[in-house]
Design a protein around this nucleic acid. Sequence first.
DNA 1: TTGTACGCGTTATCAA
DNA 2: TTGATAACGCGTACAA
Lengths: 326, 326
Amino acid sequence: MAVGTVSRVLGGYENVAPGIREKVRKTIEQVGFVPNAIAQSMRLGATRTIGLIVYDITVPALAAFVKSVQRECQDAGYVVLLANTGGDRSVEFGMLKTFAQRQTDGLIVTFGSEGDPDLSAALTETGIPIVLFERDTPAEFDRILADHEGGMYAATRHLLDIGHRRIALITGSPQIAAARSRLAGFRNAYSRAKLPFDEAIALSGGFSAAYGYEQAKLLLRDPNPPSAILAGGLSMLPGVLRAIDERGVRVPEQLSLIGIADAPLAEFLRPPIAAIRWDFVELGRLAAQLLLTRIDGSADAAARRLVLPTEFISRESCAPPQRRAR
Amino acid sequence: MAVGTVSRVLGGYENVAPGIREKVRKTIEQVGFVPNAIAQSMRLGATRTIGLIVYDITVPALAAFVKSVQRECQDAGYVVLLANTGGDRSVEFGMLKTFAQRQTDGLIVTFGSEGDPDLSAALTETGIPIVLFERDTPAEFDRILADHEGGMYAATRHLLDIGHRRIALITGSPQIAAARSRLAGFRNAYSRAKLPFDEAIALSGGFSAAYGYEQAKLLLRDPNPPSAILAGGLSMLPGVLRAIDERGVRVPEQLSLIGIADAPLAEFLRPPIAAIRWDFVELGRLAAQLLLTRIDGSADAAARRLVLPTEFISRESCAPPQRRAR
DNA sequence: TTGTACGCGTTATCAA
DNA sequence: TTGATAACGCGTACAA
């Protein structure tokens, strides 16, 4: 009963005499033998591990994404290493290196800055298959995104249709594809409606609740405040709501409001908050599949780019603007 | 320039001639050498990996917990493997085995059923240091919990104080410590107030939004409906809210409502929903520390049991009951 | 101070 | 069909 035989039994190979096989099985049971996956990884040159690097797992939409990725990987016999960067560049580099050292078979990554050539270089240098999530760099990585332009176009269009003209968009830095797309959709809606567009009221700078709070506060204090706000970040809604609350502004009578990515409780708010939403579970599923096919070599060499549709959910937080705003 | 020398340079040992050290450094840089953590794990018998098994990372409170654990582990040079069980027993066993095979140095675990001796045995058999999260089995594992009894006592007491007598508690199965504690706090509040307790209105069966929805629906249809509901599960609030919404019941005029674990948007609901809450970040931090001290052997042999305080946040969703309820 | 060689637990190859 | 052995990449004990 040599080690090789045991390995063959566990590997399910046929060339083991039934008697021996049984004996091995029994002994394994008796001593509670558990194969050491680390040694397997070493021998096979694959860890069946994938690294998942996100901004903040606490954002409901990202949690759904992570859960979906994990589920998909689990089904394929992979295990996922999770990292939260908080958007900190040095943490991003650190986790990238850590995961590379740990020989993850693949990486799903969202980084804070898209243009950064150092980051692109670092990603390439790992030599690990990579799927970019919500990032659209020029580099040749597989990537998956939501159609923010389409969703924002639909939302803006709706606001224009019901009579709004002075609409504020608060969203992240144009370094990020998602913010650029939203800006494009926002502008398109104006231009297709043949309406003049006030550049000054499209605020790009951050995705956080804090940023949303600050910007909404400034907007509402303005002598000529917007009649509608598009809260263009996954976690921005609470911040914007706080500003609205503090200012005592009534929605939708004095201000129409649309959130990005449906929050679990958004429909129970009074009034229910309209939203642009998309399927994070599907996004996670596809991201994982993109990566897994890349890992097993069944994918074309060319980088793939998947864009998932977004949808505008109309709710009572939107109404035609009042004559004399506030 | 032998392998041993390279290893010594990377390990930061002193006994390397400065000239050689520099030369090694430069070569490492040039060829982009990255130490293989898998081989290190094999040699050292430690992976610096911890496994985290939770019910559902999509629940905001659990996401906060996971994030906190991950952060703490990262700071200590550990990496975390994440698993979502969805409460499925076979998945729980599966992930436990997977993580054991992968030689994780420690495990933080929430399992669906507490009494299950098979599960306890499986945990013990791994031989891996374990911290139980929100589970209070008789077995001798380190564990960390929130003081649900205290929070529930305070909340129930508040409702009794403002005049409620018929209060419904919807919470999980008494197999789970959290549910038992809540039930205890609920009962204590009645008995200390010397009020009769209606057992039939404490509903134990699940933590999900769906369960909350079903039970709330039944309660509100009752000819003698409760004047207050305690939604006793992390993710139950949306379900209960839906039932309330559908029935057209006004909060707090017709029904007082308290949620468990503050939802991010709970304060923006109309009315803001009172809550029992506690610090999930701290919970995660302490869980990780409990585990890390266990791993590095600096902990006493005896199992430790940490209980974190909970706090009742009074908000406008609670008001004295009306004379003639509905 | 530096180099050599062993062993960690597997799988795969080769010989028996 | 089975057993022995090399190799994966590292850290370290020991020899030089």
